[in-house]
């Protein structure tokens, strides 16, 4: 037995809402952004903190997944080194379309303070990036704001158009 009986005649008739396909799909996509845990360095700790008690990322529908096949957004948290670069590209290729990338922290954006031989000077040399977060390390609030911005971006997209190939560099 249903707990709540719906009165079809009252309150606006049938339980039907009209919307466009774009809106309903983007609503679903933007509110269940499953993130690939790409913790590389210090920012990974802040990424964990945003998933933990106080900042509670589950509210935004962001659930961290360990497998690229289940993830929609890759949060690159930390320094990308030259030795690791091929792995980030491989995991990015394994993610299913549509996919987005958040580059978290100065090191992922530009190499940051590590202007050395071993550091990739910006993760956008290897994979296309949608959103850059400044800070070393960015606070969990910053990451939350980034996710909200990404949701805004997703809601503007049209699902019938093929995703534009994102520019590298």
């Amino acid at each position: 037995m249903a707990q709540h009986q719906v009165n079809y005649a009252a309150s606006g008739g049938l339980p039907v809402a009209l919307t466009t396909v774009d809106k309903i799909v983007n609503w679903g996509r933007s509110n269940s952004l499953w993130a690939l845990t790409y913790g590389l360095a210090c920012c990974a700790i802040e990424m964990m903190a945003s998933g933990a008690s106080r900042y509670d990322f589950d509210r935004f529908g962001v659930i961290f997944r360990a497998s690229p096949r289940q993830a929609d957004v890759m949060i690159v948290a930390g320094t990308l080194t030259k030795k690791h670069a091929e792995f980030i590209r491989r995991l990015y290729d394994q993610m299913a379309e549509p996919k987005w990338v958040i580059s978290m922290g100065s090191c992922a954006n530009t190499g940051g303070m590590f202007n050395t031989y071993a550091t990739v000077q910006g993760v956008d040399r290897v994979i296309p990036v949608d959103l850059y977060l400044p800070g070393c390390a960015p606070r969990p609030e910053t990451l939350q704001y980034a996710v909200m911005l990404l949701q805004k971006k997703i809601r503007k997209q049209s699902i019938f158009q093929k995703q534009k190939p994102k520019r590298l560099v």
Partner: peptide, 26 residues
């Protein structure tokens, strides 16, 4: 290991002592 090698010891050789202190945070 080495997937997070960022060359801190090389950085230290090219920085004055006070400059290197924030690097030790990481």
């Amino acid at each position: 290991i080495g997937y997070l090698h960022r060359g801190m010891e090389k950085m230290a050789e090219n920085m004055i002592y006070n400059e290197f202190l924030p690097t030790t945070d990481r």
